[in-house]
Amino acid sequence: MQTIGQQFINGLSLGSIYALLALGYTMVYGIIKLINFAHGDIYMLGAFWGYYVINQLHFNFILAMLSAMLFCALVGVVIEYFAYRPLRHSPRITALITAIGVSFLLENGMSYLFTANTRSFPQVIKTVTYHVAGLRISNIQLLILGSACFLMLLLELIIKRTKMGKAMRAVAVDPTAAQLVGINLNHTISFTFALGSAMAGAAGVLIGLYYNSIDPLMGMTPGIKAFVAAVIGGIGSIPGASLGGFIIGILETGVQAIGLSAYKDAVVYFVLIVILLVMPAGIFGKHTKEKV
Protein backbone atom coordinates (compact mmCIF):
# COMPACT_ATOMS: atom_id res chain seq x y z
CA MET A 1 0.00 0.00 0.00
CA GLN A 2 2.74 2.39 0.98
CA THR A 3 4.82 1.66 -2.09
CA ILE A 4 1.79 2.27 -4.25
CA GLY A 5 1.24 5.61 -2.56
CA GLN A 6 4.92 6.44 -2.88
CA GLN A 7 5.01 5.55 -6.56
CA PHE A 8 1.87 7.56 -7.13
CA ILE A 9 3.57 10.64 -5.71
CA ASN A 10 6.68 10.06 -7.78
CA GLY A 11 4.52 9.44 -10.81
CA LEU A 12 2.65 12.69 -10.32
CA SER A 13 5.89 14.65 -10.25
CA LEU A 14 7.22 13.05 -13.40
CA GLY A 15 3.77 13.24 -14.96
CA SER A 16 3.67 17.02 -14.40
CA ILE A 17 6.76 17.34 -16.56
CA TYR A 18 5.25 15.21 -19.32
CA ALA A 19 2.01 17.14 -19.06
CA LEU A 20 3.76 20.51 -19.48
CA LEU A 21 5.56 19.16 -22.52
CA ALA A 22 2.49 17.48 -23.99
CA LEU A 23 0.65 20.82 -23.96
CA GLY A 24 3.08 22.26 -26.48
CA TYR A 25 2.68 19.31 -28.83
CA THR A 26 -1.05 19.44 -28.66
CA MET A 27 -1.37 23.21 -29.12
CA VAL A 28 0.94 23.31 -32.11
CA TYR A 29 -0.77 20.30 -33.64
CA GLY A 30 -4.15 21.90 -33.01
CA ILE A 31 -3.26 25.04 -34.88
CA ILE A 32 -1.03 23.95 -37.77
CA LYS A 33 -1.41 20.14 -37.73
CA LEU A 34 2.31 19.71 -37.28
CA ILE A 35 3.97 17.32 -34.86
CA ASN A 36 6.78 19.53 -33.70
CA PHE A 37 9.53 17.00 -33.21
CA ALA A 38 11.86 19.71 -31.97
CA HIS A 39 9.66 20.36 -28.96
CA GLY A 40 11.64 18.05 -26.66
CA ASP A 41 14.78 19.96 -27.59
CA ILE A 42 13.22 23.24 -26.55
CA TYR A 43 12.78 21.65 -23.15
CA MET A 44 16.49 20.79 -23.22
CA LEU A 45 17.32 24.40 -24.08
CA GLY A 46 15.19 25.52 -21.14
CA ALA A 47 17.20 23.26 -18.83
CA PHE A 48 20.52 24.61 -20.17
CA TRP A 49 19.29 28.17 -19.84
CA GLY A 50 18.39 27.45 -16.22
CA TYR A 51 21.82 25.88 -15.68
CA TYR A 52 23.60 28.95 -16.97
CA VAL A 53 21.58 31.69 -15.34
CA ILE A 54 21.73 29.94 -11.97
CA ASN A 55 25.45 29.22 -12.17
CA GLN A 56 26.66 32.37 -13.88
CA LEU A 57 24.13 35.01 -12.98
CA HIS A 58 23.08 33.53 -9.65
CA PHE A 59 19.41 33.74 -10.46
CA ASN A 60 17.06 32.28 -7.89
CA PHE A 61 14.69 29.52 -8.89
CA ILE A 62 11.68 31.66 -9.78
CA LEU A 63 13.75 34.03 -11.89
CA ALA A 64 15.52 31.12 -13.58
CA MET A 65 12.24 29.49 -14.49
CA LEU A 66 10.58 32.69 -15.71
CA SER A 67 13.58 33.66 -17.80
CA ALA A 68 13.80 30.12 -19.22
CA MET A 69 10.15 30.40 -20.22
CA LEU A 70 10.77 33.70 -21.95
CA PHE A 71 13.89 32.41 -23.67
CA CYS A 72 12.15 29.26 -24.89
CA ALA A 73 9.11 31.22 -26.06
CA LEU A 74 11.46 33.27 -28.19
CA VAL A 75 13.24 30.18 -29.52
CA GLY A 76 9.88 28.60 -30.40
CA VAL A 77 8.78 31.70 -32.28
CA VAL A 78 12.09 31.91 -34.15
CA ILE A 79 11.96 28.23 -35.13
CA GLU A 80 8.42 28.58 -36.42
CA TYR A 81 9.33 31.72 -38.35
CA PHE A 82 12.38 30.33 -40.12
CA ALA A 83 11.67 26.60 -40.36
CA TYR A 84 7.92 26.03 -40.49
CA ARG A 85 6.35 29.21 -41.83
CA PRO A 86 7.92 28.94 -45.30
CA LEU A 87 6.41 25.44 -45.52
CA ARG A 88 2.90 26.42 -44.42
CA HIS A 89 1.43 25.47 -47.79
CA SER A 90 3.68 22.49 -48.48
CA PRO A 91 2.59 18.90 -47.91
CA ARG A 92 2.52 18.00 -44.24
CA ILE A 93 5.28 15.46 -44.56
CA THR A 94 7.70 18.23 -45.63
CA ALA A 95 7.13 20.16 -42.42
CA LEU A 96 7.37 16.97 -40.39
CA ILE A 97 10.76 16.12 -41.86
CA THR A 98 11.87 19.70 -41.28
CA ALA A 99 10.85 19.39 -37.63
CA ILE A 100 13.04 16.29 -37.31
CA GLY A 101 15.84 18.27 -38.94
CA VAL A 102 15.41 21.14 -36.47
CA SER A 103 15.55 18.62 -33.65
CA PHE A 104 18.87 17.21 -34.91
CA LEU A 105 20.19 20.72 -35.38
CA LEU A 106 19.43 21.68 -31.80
CA GLU A 107 20.77 18.44 -30.33
CA ASN A 108 23.96 18.41 -32.34
CA GLY A 109 24.42 22.17 -32.13
CA MET A 110 24.24 22.02 -28.36
CA SER A 111 26.54 18.97 -28.22
CA TYR A 112 29.04 20.90 -30.32
CA LEU A 113 28.83 24.08 -28.29
CA PHE A 114 28.64 22.58 -24.82
CA THR A 115 29.96 19.03 -25.39
CA ALA A 116 27.75 16.00 -25.01
CA ASN A 117 28.72 15.54 -21.36
CA THR A 118 26.14 15.30 -18.66
CA ARG A 119 26.26 18.25 -16.30
CA SER A 120 24.91 18.40 -12.82
CA PHE A 121 22.18 20.96 -12.45
CA PRO A 122 22.80 23.50 -9.68
CA GLN A 123 20.57 22.81 -6.72
CA VAL A 124 19.21 26.29 -6.13
CA ILE A 125 16.71 24.88 -3.72
CA LYS A 126 17.93 22.61 -0.98
CA THR A 127 16.04 19.35 -1.04
CA VAL A 128 14.00 18.72 2.07
CA THR A 129 12.12 15.47 2.44
CA TYR A 130 8.93 15.36 4.44
CA HIS A 131 7.53 12.19 5.90
CA VAL A 132 3.79 12.12 5.77
CA ALA A 133 1.87 8.99 6.73
CA GLY A 134 4.87 6.86 5.93
CA LEU A 135 5.37 8.48 2.52
CA ARG A 136 8.38 10.49 1.45
CA ILE A 137 7.58 13.74 -0.33
CA SER A 138 10.32 16.21 -1.20
CA ASN A 139 9.87 19.95 -1.46
CA ILE A 140 11.11 19.65 -5.05
CA GLN A 141 8.27 17.27 -5.89
CA LEU A 142 5.77 19.66 -4.39
CA LEU A 143 7.35 22.51 -6.28
CA ILE A 144 7.14 20.61 -9.57
CA LEU A 145 3.55 19.61 -9.04
CA GLY A 146 2.58 23.08 -7.81
CA SER A 147 4.34 24.93 -10.65
CA ALA A 148 2.95 22.57 -13.26
CA CYS A 149 -0.61 22.87 -11.98
CA PHE A 150 -0.29 26.63 -11.74
CA LEU A 151 1.04 26.90 -15.29
CA MET A 152 -1.64 24.60 -16.67
CA LEU A 153 -4.34 26.62 -14.97
CA LEU A 154 -2.83 29.82 -16.32
CA LEU A 155 -2.73 28.35 -19.81
CA GLU A 156 -6.34 27.23 -19.52
CA LEU A 157 -7.30 30.78 -18.52
CA ILE A 158 -5.37 32.29 -21.41
CA ILE A 159 -6.97 29.94 -23.92
CA LYS A 160 -10.48 30.14 -22.54
CA ARG A 161 -10.76 33.76 -21.48
CA THR A 162 -8.42 36.02 -23.41
CA LYS A 163 -9.10 37.38 -26.85
CA MET A 164 -5.84 35.90 -28.17
CA GLY A 165 -6.74 32.52 -26.68
CA LYS A 166 -10.10 32.58 -28.40
CA ALA A 167 -8.39 33.58 -31.62
CA MET A 168 -6.13 30.53 -31.24
CA ARG A 169 -9.17 28.30 -30.95
CA ALA A 170 -10.80 30.02 -33.91
CA VAL A 171 -7.72 29.52 -36.09
CA ALA A 172 -7.47 25.89 -34.98
CA VAL A 173 -11.03 25.09 -36.10
CA ASP A 174 -11.32 27.30 -39.18
CA PRO A 175 -8.33 29.33 -40.38
CA THR A 176 -10.13 30.83 -43.37
CA ALA A 177 -13.09 32.05 -41.33
CA ALA A 178 -10.62 33.36 -38.76
CA GLN A 179 -8.97 35.49 -41.43
CA LEU A 180 -12.36 36.74 -42.56
CA VAL A 181 -13.00 38.24 -39.13
CA GLY A 182 -9.60 39.92 -39.17
CA ILE A 183 -7.45 37.47 -37.20
CA ASN A 184 -3.84 37.47 -38.36
CA LEU A 185 -2.81 33.84 -38.82
CA ASN A 186 0.90 34.46 -38.45
CA HIS A 187 0.55 36.33 -35.18
CA THR A 188 -1.75 33.69 -33.77
CA ILE A 189 0.56 30.85 -34.76
CA SER A 190 3.57 32.67 -33.27
CA PHE A 191 1.61 33.19 -30.08
CA THR A 192 0.83 29.47 -29.93
CA PHE A 193 4.48 28.51 -30.37
CA ALA A 194 5.44 31.03 -27.69
CA LEU A 195 2.98 29.59 -25.18
CA GLY A 196 3.86 25.95 -25.88
CA SER A 197 7.60 26.59 -25.81
CA ALA A 198 7.34 28.56 -22.57
CA MET A 199 5.72 25.52 -20.95
CA ALA A 200 8.56 23.35 -22.25
CA GLY A 201 11.11 25.81 -20.85
CA ALA A 202 9.53 25.63 -17.41
CA ALA A 203 9.52 21.83 -17.62
CA GLY A 204 13.23 21.86 -18.50
CA VAL A 205 14.19 23.84 -15.40
CA LEU A 206 11.95 21.71 -13.20
CA ILE A 207 13.41 18.44 -14.48
CA GLY A 208 16.92 19.80 -13.93
CA LEU A 209 16.08 20.34 -10.30
CA TYR A 210 14.38 16.97 -9.98
CA TYR A 211 16.93 14.71 -11.67
CA ASN A 212 19.88 16.95 -11.05
CA SER A 213 21.43 16.23 -14.43
CA ILE A 214 21.14 17.67 -17.92
CA ASP A 215 22.67 16.92 -21.32
CA PRO A 216 22.04 17.94 -24.94
CA LEU A 217 20.10 14.75 -25.72
CA MET A 218 17.91 14.88 -22.62
CA GLY A 219 14.91 16.04 -24.68
CA MET A 220 14.63 12.99 -26.91
CA THR A 221 12.92 10.41 -24.71
CA PRO A 222 10.72 12.79 -22.69
CA GLY A 223 9.81 14.45 -25.98
CA ILE A 224 8.54 11.18 -27.41
CA LYS A 225 6.74 10.29 -24.20
CA ALA A 226 5.07 13.67 -24.02
CA PHE A 227 4.01 13.20 -27.62
CA VAL A 228 2.54 9.83 -26.66
CA ALA A 229 0.80 11.57 -23.75
CA ALA A 230 -0.71 14.12 -26.14
CA VAL A 231 -1.93 11.34 -28.44
CA ILE A 232 -3.40 9.34 -25.57
CA GLY A 233 -5.23 12.43 -24.32
CA GLY A 234 -6.47 13.21 -27.81
CA ILE A 235 -4.12 15.35 -29.88
CA GLY A 236 -5.39 18.91 -30.08
CA SER A 237 -7.07 18.67 -26.67
CA ILE A 238 -5.58 20.72 -23.81
CA PRO A 239 -7.12 18.79 -20.89
CA GLY A 240 -6.26 15.60 -22.77
CA ALA A 241 -2.58 16.55 -22.87
CA SER A 242 -2.49 17.22 -19.12
CA LEU A 243 -4.26 13.99 -18.30
CA GLY A 244 -2.14 12.02 -20.75
CA GLY A 245 1.02 13.42 -19.14
CA PHE A 246 -0.04 12.30 -15.69
CA ILE A 247 -1.06 8.87 -16.99
CA ILE A 248 2.33 8.30 -18.59
CA GLY A 249 4.20 9.55 -15.52
CA ILE A 250 2.30 7.33 -13.12
CA LEU A 251 2.52 4.36 -15.45
CA GLU A 252 6.25 4.72 -15.83
CA THR A 253 7.02 4.94 -12.13
CA GLY A 254 4.55 2.13 -11.44
CA VAL A 255 6.25 -0.19 -13.86
CA GLN A 256 9.61 0.65 -12.33
CA ALA A 257 8.28 -0.04 -8.86
CA ILE A 258 7.24 -3.57 -9.68
CA GLY A 259 10.76 -4.25 -10.86
CA LEU A 260 10.26 -3.93 -14.59
CA SER A 261 12.45 -0.87 -15.10
CA ALA A 262 13.87 -2.32 -18.26
CA TYR A 263 10.40 -2.44 -19.80
CA LYS A 264 9.09 0.95 -18.71
CA ASP A 265 9.30 2.46 -22.19
CA ALA A 266 7.78 -0.63 -23.78
CA VAL A 267 4.83 -0.38 -21.41
CA VAL A 268 4.22 3.24 -22.40
CA TYR A 269 4.01 2.29 -26.06
CA PHE A 270 1.88 -0.73 -25.26
CA VAL A 271 -0.63 1.49 -23.48
CA LEU A 272 -0.54 3.87 -26.43
CA ILE A 273 -1.46 1.06 -28.79
CA VAL A 274 -4.23 -0.23 -26.53
CA ILE A 275 -5.77 3.20 -26.04
CA LEU A 276 -5.65 3.98 -29.73
CA LEU A 277 -7.33 0.65 -30.51
CA VAL A 278 -10.14 1.33 -28.06
CA MET A 279 -10.37 5.10 -28.57
CA PRO A 280 -8.77 6.00 -31.89
CA ALA A 281 -9.11 9.73 -31.23
CA GLY A 282 -7.65 9.52 -27.71
CA ILE A 283 -9.43 10.13 -24.43
CA PHE A 284 -10.64 13.68 -25.14
CA GLY A 285 -10.29 13.44 -28.89
CA LYS A 286 -12.83 15.07 -31.13
CA HIS A 287 -15.25 12.65 -32.67
CA THR A 288 -15.06 13.65 -36.27
CA LYS A 289 -18.69 14.35 -36.78
CA GLU A 290 -19.45 17.25 -39.01
CA LYS A 291 -22.64 19.14 -39.52
CA VAL A 292 -23.33 19.65 -43.19
Binding site: K166, A170, A177
Partner: peptide, 14 residues
Protein backbone atom coordinates in the same frame (compact mmCIF):
# COMPACT_ATOMS: atom_id res chain seq x y z
CA UNK B 1 -18.23 28.79 -41.11
CA UNK B 2 -19.00 29.70 -37.52
CA UNK B 3 -16.40 28.63 -34.95
CA UNK B 4 -17.51 25.40 -33.25
CA UNK B 5 -16.21 25.04 -29.71
CA UNK B 6 -16.61 28.76 -29.12
CA UNK B 7 -19.82 30.01 -27.59
CA UNK B 8 -22.23 32.18 -29.56
CA UNK B 9 -20.98 35.25 -27.75
CA UNK B 10 -17.33 34.33 -28.31
CA UNK B 11 -18.08 33.94 -32.01
CA UNK B 12 -19.48 37.45 -32.00
CA UNK B 13 -16.48 38.68 -30.04
CA UNK B 14 -14.21 37.27 -32.76
Amino acid sequence: HIFPGLSVQENLQM
